[in-house]
Amino acid sequence: RELEAFAERFKQRRIKLGVTQADVGSALANLKIPGVGSLSQSTICRFESLTLSHNNMIALKPILQAWLEEAEGAQREKMNKP
């Protein structure tokens, strides 16, 4: 249940930020998480549509959570600048 809720929230917030699935995939490489490079657009799509295996969903959740927090933080900074 929690994974499904996160996937839905992730998709809504990604769209609100105006970021494509492909952008998310390539931006993950910038997070410098050990062992994590970029991901394909189709992987992000399959995460959002819950068609990845349960284990893959569990593995990707903290990575996508980290990206989302960073992206939303950058958005807030941009909006707070005069």
Score class of each variant (00 low, 15 high):
residue 11 K to P: 01
residue 65 Q to T: 09
residue 79 M to F: 13
residue 2 E to C: 04
residue 45 C to P: 05
residue 70 E to I: 06
residue 71 A to I: 05
residue 27 A to I: 04
residue 28 L to P: 01
residue 50 L to A: 14
residue 30 N to Q: 13
residue 51 T to A: 11
residue 32 K to C: 07
residue 59 A to C: 09
residue 82 P to S: 11
residue 72 E to Q: 05
residue 78 K to N: 10
residue 49 S to R: 08
residue 14 R to P: 00
residue 24 V to R: 01
residue 79 M to W: 11
residue 66 A to M: 10
residue 78 K to W: 12
residue 25 G to P: 04
residue 27 A to L: 04
residue 66 A to Y: 07
residue 18 G to A: 04
residue 49 S to D: 13
residue 53 S to E: 12
residue 10 F to W: 04
residue 19 V to D: 04
residue 48 E to I: 00
residue 43 T to M: 14
residue 40 S to Y: 04
residue 39 L to Y: 04
residue 18 G to W: 15
residue 63 I to K: 06
residue 47 F to I: 00
residue 33 I to E: 05
residue 10 F to H: 00
residue 44 I to Q: 00
residue 32 K to E: 13
residue 10 F to C: 00
residue 26 S to D: 14
residue 33 I to C: 12
residue 21 Q to V: 08
residue 50 L to K: 13
residue 70 E to T: 10
residue 16 K to I: 07
residue 33 I to R: 05
residue 20 T to E: 07
residue 40 S to A: 07
residue 30 N to V: 04
residue 2 E to M: 05
residue 22 A to D: 07
residue 15 I to H: 08
residue 26 S to F: 11
residue 22 A to Y: 14
residue 26 S to N: 15
residue 41 Q to M: 08
residue 12 Q to D: 10
residue 31 L to R: 12
residue 75 Q to A: 12
residue 78 K to T: 04
residue 63 I to M: 06
residue 82 P to H: 03
residue 73 G to C: 11
residue 7 A to L: 01
residue 76 R to L: 13
residue 62 P to Y: 02
residue 77 E to H: 08
residue 37 G to R: 07
residue 48 E to L: 00
residue 78 K to P: 09
residue 5 A to D: 09
residue 56 N to G: 11
residue 44 I to C: 00
residue 74 A to D: 10
residue 20 T to S: 07
residue 74 A to F: 10
residue 39 L to P: 10
residue 81 K to P: 08
residue 60 L to W: 02
residue 1 R to F: 13
residue 29 A to W: 02
residue 66 A to L: 07
residue 53 S to D: 06
residue 82 P to R: 06
residue 26 S to G: 10
residue 81 K to M: 09
residue 82 P to T: 12
residue 72 E to P: 03
residue 52 L to K: 00
residue 66 A to K: 14
residue 13 R to Y: 05
residue 72 E to F: 01
residue 53 S to M: 03
residue 66 A to G: 10
residue 16 K to G: 12
residue 27 A to S: 11
residue 41 Q to Y: 05
residue 64 L to A: 02
residue 34 P to M: 06
residue 65 Q to C: 06
residue 81 K to G: 13
residue 66 A to W: 05
residue 43 T to L: 14
residue 78 K to Q: 09
residue 57 M to H: 03
residue 8 E to S: 13
residue 10 F to D: 01
residue 72 E to C: 03
residue 79 M to G: 13
residue 54 H to D: 10
residue 53 S to V: 03
residue 13 R to C: 03
residue 70 E to N: 12
residue 61 K to H: 04
residue 71 A to Q: 09
residue 42 S to P: 05
residue 59 A to I: 11
residue 79 M to T: 11
residue 63 I to E: 04
residue 7 A to G: 02
residue 58 I to P: 01
residue 1 R to K: 15
residue 57 M to R: 01
residue 28 L to Y: 02
residue 80 N to I: 07
residue 25 G to M: 11
residue 37 G to L: 07
residue 69 E to Q: 11
residue 55 N to D: 07
residue 28 L to M: 08
residue 59 A to R: 09
residue 43 T to Q: 07
residue 19 V to I: 11
residue 53 S to F: 00
residue 78 K to F: 12
residue 17 L to C: 04
residue 51 T to C: 07
residue 68 L to E: 01
residue 21 Q to I: 13
residue 57 M to P: 02
residue 65 Q to Y: 08
residue 1 R to C: 09
residue 34 P to K: 08
residue 80 N to S: 14
residue 4 E to T: 10
residue 80 N to Y: 10
residue 43 T to S: 07
residue 63 I to A: 08
residue 35 G to I: 15
residue 76 R to W: 09
residue 3 L to G: 02
residue 11 K to R: 13
residue 29 A to I: 11
residue 2 E to F: 04
residue 51 T to L: 11
residue 4 E to V: 11
residue 74 A to W: 06
residue 14 R to C: 01
residue 50 L to W: 04
residue 38 S to F: 15
residue 61 K to D: 01
residue 64 L to C: 02
residue 58 I to C: 07
residue 63 I to Y: 12
residue 16 K to E: 15
residue 28 L to N: 02
residue 40 S to D: 14
residue 26 S to K: 10
residue 54 H to M: 14
residue 78 K to Y: 07
residue 23 D to W: 03
residue 26 S to T: 07
residue 77 E to Y: 11
residue 63 I to G: 04
residue 42 S to H: 06
residue 54 H to C: 08
residue 75 Q to H: 14
residue 1 R to N: 13
residue 14 R to T: 00
residue 33 I to Y: 05
residue 33 I to D: 04
residue 56 N to D: 11
residue 70 E to G: 09
residue 75 Q to K: 12
residue 71 A to D: 02
residue 62 P to K: 04
residue 43 T to R: 02
residue 76 R to Y: 07
residue 41 Q to D: 14
residue 25 G to A: 14
residue 68 L to A: 02
residue 36 V to H: 02
residue 54 H to L: 14
residue 19 V to C: 07
residue 25 G to N: 07
residue 49 S to T: 12
residue 77 E to F: 06
residue 72 E to W: 03
residue 66 A to E: 13
residue 40 S to R: 06
residue 37 G to Y: 09
residue 74 A to G: 09
residue 32 K to I: 06
residue 36 V to Y: 04
residue 60 L to I: 04
residue 21 Q to A: 09
residue 30 N to R: 08
residue 51 T to F: 03
residue 6 F to V: 03
residue 67 W to D: 03
residue 35 G to V: 01
residue 70 E to V: 05
